[in-house]
Every structure is written in structure tokens, then in C-alpha cells.
Nucleic acid binder design. Structure first.
Length: 318
RNA sequence: GGAGGAGUUCCCGAGUGGCCAAAGGGGGCAGACUGUAAAUCUGUUAUCAGUGAUUUCGGUGGUUCGAAUCCACCCUCCUCCA
């Protein structure tokens, strides 16, 4: 009786280092699922240690999608993620399996679930560069004023320093003739692509999360993060590529070229990871429909498995 | 033992009589977020109270209408001479 309903899928998210990968595999095994990763950095090939990408052993035979789908020297985007990940989800559904979205990139998950459209076809690098130079010479106020004439609604929401968003809003208008506000309104009108049951993992105490992050960074360092980054750099991945903006990678790159010590790099990686986790929490906290599992000191996967299963079945996902 | 120098709010660090709860940076906390999102941007950061009050600038006294800023003594640290 539910043939034409919005497909139901499961989502496991949460800040970094909370056990999403492990829980995803556990649930996939139990619920006949396949994992679709929602991680903006794990999708790059040859970036394994620093992204905490699941190893073959950790995957335990569970199919994982959206891992290793791009070269580190090519830019990726939400738009591309949505179309590729959506194809994966569809194929999982076609196989009669449960798609389990696992990852911490909030924007990717939201966009995939909503089936969001993005304005414009491909990015026009030349236009982007032009706008960027204009911004740098004229300043944020002037550029925001310019946007105000085209799209006052969006301009009012943006801070003059918010270069990326001001430029994107301008870029959308120039390349499509429509304001980004109009685009947003249109895509918001569409019904969600999927009916997602979202579980978020975190720790009851912020300090426990932070301790875990620190410990994991130490493990990454021991596992050879610096070597991994050196290889990427040697293979010609530019330092300003999107992939190299990943936490752990940019700091390691600085240490490798001697700008900072390895100790300093290690500290920065920890600090940036903690901050990242905080931003992830900010993103997730405003979503009311999320079911949170808050670890007490250390993950309890047996509890999480039962809790998640109950939650999914109560929502008719399984 | 002698001669200099320094101790500032979570940290670094400016501040030499009122405009100082104290620049700036870091860190923390909070927020935003629709084609770079592990990115980017913003706000806030002594305490209590709704424009006010209270406690801060190593310690204790003092000068002054008024001190982080001046004086005395004390404590701690650094450099140099012995």
C-alpha cells in the first residue's frame, strides 16, 4: 500500500569521532542495509588515515558507497554529491536493501534527503575569479551593496565579510538571470526526496567528545598521517585544493614544508577537529526531528543498535 | 652580595594618573550556513543586576578628588656583575 510513498531511508550522523562508521556497519549487517557515505572528505581517493575512512576490515563486507569517488586534485561540490549519492541510494533501494546514510557533512545529508536543486549548471571559473578580484579591490560593503540591488533579501542576510556567499549570490544571478532567493524558494517548494529517520551520535559531556578526538588524532599521527599527506603533495595535489583544506591535511602540509613543527601541527589538528565537531553540533542541534544517542564516556554499540532498530521500526523505515 | 628588567582579565600581550572592565591576538562559548561545507562567516567572553552596581591589573600600605598607571615595603621570575 505504500508503493508511491517517499522512500524511507536511515541516517546516522553526528560530530566527528563518535562512532558513526561502526554503528553504520552494525546496523547494515542487521538490517540488510548498504552504507552511503555522506562525508565531504572521505570521498577523495588516497585520503584514508586523516579522514578516518573505514578500512576493508571495518566494513565487514557491508557495501559502502560514495567513498573514493573523486581524485584529491579535483574540486567536488554539494551538487555533485547529491546527484551521485542519490544514484547510489536509488540502486540500493532497487536491490531491496536499506540505504543507511552515514556521515558528518550536514549540508550533504540535508541536500540529499531534500533532493535539493542547485542553481546553475556548472561553475564558471572565470566569472568566479573575476568576482573574487572585484571583491578584493572594492571591498565587501560595495559588493554587498551591488547584491542588494539585485537580491535585497539575500543581501540583507549576508555580512559584508561573507565573501563566499556574496559572490555565489552574485554568480547565480549573473549566470542564470534569477536571484538565489528565487532558486531557494523554488527548490524548497519541492517535497523531500526521502523520508529520513535520523540518528545522531554524540557524547553527553563535551569533554568526553574532545578527549576522544584528541586520542584519535594521536592514532592518525601514529598511523602515518604525515606520510599520507606527503604522498598526496608529491603526486601533485595542489595545496589550495578542496581536498587539502581537510583538517589534518592542511596542518600536515604546513609541517612538511617546515612552516610549523610537527608538534605544532598535531596540536592544531586536534584543536581544529574539536572546533569542527562544535560546528557540526551547531548544525545538528537546530533539527528537532533527530533522535540523539549520547554516549556516557564511551560508546555502547549494543545499546545503540537496539535503540536505532526500535527507532527505525517505529518510523516504518524497517 | 651588587646592577638592571619584569609581574595585566583563561593564555599571549598593549596600556604610565581620569575617556579602562582595560587595545589587539589566541583560546573558550554561542550562532549562521542552499554548487569550495573537515570550507566560510558572525557574535560573545570579570561578576551580578534590563542602560546600574560590585570585584579586578603579584601582595600590603600610602599619595591623590581620582591609580593598572605615582611612592614605600614585601613576594616571585629574568638578565647582567660578583
Amino acid at each position: 500500500m505504500t508503493e508511491n510513498q517517499t522512500p524511507k531511508i536511515a541516517v546516522i550522523t553526528g560530530p566527528t569521532a563518535t562512532g558513526k562508521t561502526a554503528l553504520g556497519v552494525l546496523l547494515a549487517k542487521e538490517l540488510n542495509g548498504e552504507v552511503v557515505s555522506a562525508d565531504s572528505m572521505q570521498l577523495y581517493r588516497r585520503m584514508n588515515i586523516g579522514t578516518a575512512k573505514p578500512t576493508l576490515a571495518e566494513m565487514q563486507g557491508v557495501p559502502h558507497h560514495m567513498l573514493d569517488v573523486a581524485e584529491p586534485n579535483c574540486p567536488y561540490s554539494v551538487a555533485r554529491y547529491v546527484s551521485e549519492a542519490d544514484a547510489c541510494v536509488q540502486s540500493v533501494l532497487a536491490r531491496g536493501h536499506l540505504p543507511i546514510i552515514v556521515g558528518g557533512t550536514g549540508l550533504y545529508i540535508d541536500s540529499l534527503v531534500a533532493g535539493r536543486d542547485f542553481a546553475g549548471e556548472a561553475t564558471d571559473e572565470k566569472l568566479r575569479l573575476e568576482l573574487s578580484e572585484k571583491y578584493d579591490t572594492l571591498g565587501g560593503e560595495a559588493m554587498r551593496d551591488e547584491l542588494f540591488k539585485l537580491d535585497p533579501e539575500r543581501a540583507a542576510k549576508l555580512h559584508p565579510s561573507d565573501k563566499k556567499r556574496i559572490l555565489r549570490a552574485l554568480e547565480v544571478f549573473i549566470s542564470t538571470g534569477k536571484t538565489i532567493t528565487e532558486h531557494d524558494a523554488e527548490t524548497q517548494k519541492k517535497p523531500p526526496r526521502y523520508d529520513a529517520a535520523v540518528i545522531a551520535l554524540s557524547f553527553a559531556e563535551r569533554n568526553d567528545l574532545y578527549d576522544r578526538i584528541d586520542r584519535r588524532v594521536d592514532l592518525m599521527l601514529q598511523a602515518g598521517l604525515f606520510d599520507e599527506v606527503r604522498e598526496l603533495l608529491n603526486s601533485g595535489v595542489p595545496e589550495n585544493s578542496t581536498a587539502m583544506q581537510a583538517i589534518g591535511y592542511k596542518e600536515a602540509a604546513l609541517a612538511l614544508c617546515g612552516e610549523i613543527t610537527q608538534e605544532e601541527a598535531a596540536e592544531r589538528i586536534k584543536r581544529e577537529s574539536r572546533r569542527y565537531a562544535k560546528r557540526q553540533l551547531t548544525w545538528l542541534r537546530r533539527k528537532s526531528e533527530i533522535a540523539w544517542i549520547l554516549w556516557n564516556k564511551t560508546p555502547d554499540f549494543d545499546f545503540a543498535r537496539r535503540y536505532s532498530t526500535n527507532f527505525f521500526s517505529s518510523l516504518g523505515v524497517i
